[in-house]
Design a binder for these strands. Structure first.
Lengths: 112, 112
DNA sequence: AAGTAAATTAACTATGAATCTAAATATACA
DNA sequence: TGTATATTTAGATTCATAGTTAATTTACTT
């Protein structure tokens, strides 16, 4: 179920799930802590977390009886990779920016 | 209905709609031409086009009895803007890249 | 004006998604 | 061992989505 572009896009298509990601970007959280931030049952949040996990947008580690959810960038990378195909169709100004990025990427590669 | 982030994310959540965007990136097309590329009725494609339009991912211009659909980058920009918030959580290498982008953005703004 | 071609809309069906309540698991600790 | 805490799962409900066929509008063509 790893790195499925469809799962990643589906996961981002719900506003609650996008908000969860924003919260997790601030700090990793248990499902109880996440649920506190929403007007929704824990069971509902759990389903959202499952969907986020299947989109490689979060990862979960077990600590005793708690499960700690944290942001996982792999899914975000999948999405931006897909989107990057369209960069060539953006406006001139952005095209310039993209060229600059590409050049800088080369520089960075040389450094490492 | 303009520039609704939710509509843009929803629109990208369907694989057929993402494929339509890829086709439109090659050339603008009528609904008939798009339909030829898929194993699906024109009515179904029309619904997808409506959803893409409401996500500002395509725009439509009328030419006689034809409607020409073409890629509209505004929705893509909305998505990448949202995603860019998470750039700070990616790995070091990418962080460096982001800094480079920001610097170049400033340069470009100075120029214009 | 009549006929044809392109596109849209309407009405329906089947499946999936988001939510709830309630029950079941699993771990911690007194 | 028993109870409290954290999480997960099951089942039901409601609404949304993706698709179909059939009917309707709009604009060319002869």
């Amino acid at each position: 179920m790893n790195l499925n572009i469809q799962h990643s896009f589906k996961a981002l298509a719900d506003p609650t799930r996008r908000q969860i990601l924003v919260h997790l970007s601030q700090q990793e959280m248990t499902i109880a802590e996440i649920t506190d931030q929403f007007d929704m049952t824990r069971a509902a949040i759990k389903k959202h977390l499952n969907i986020l996990e299947s989109g490689s947008l979060i990862s979960v580690k077990t600590n005793g009886r708690e499960r700690i959810n944290s942001l996982e960038t792999e899914g975000l990378r999948t999405i931006t990779d897909w989107l990057s195909y369209f960069d060539q169709f953006w406006d001139k100004k952005l095209s310039l920016l993209q060229t600059a990025i590409t050049n800088n990427e080369n520089d960075i590669n040389k450094e490492s």
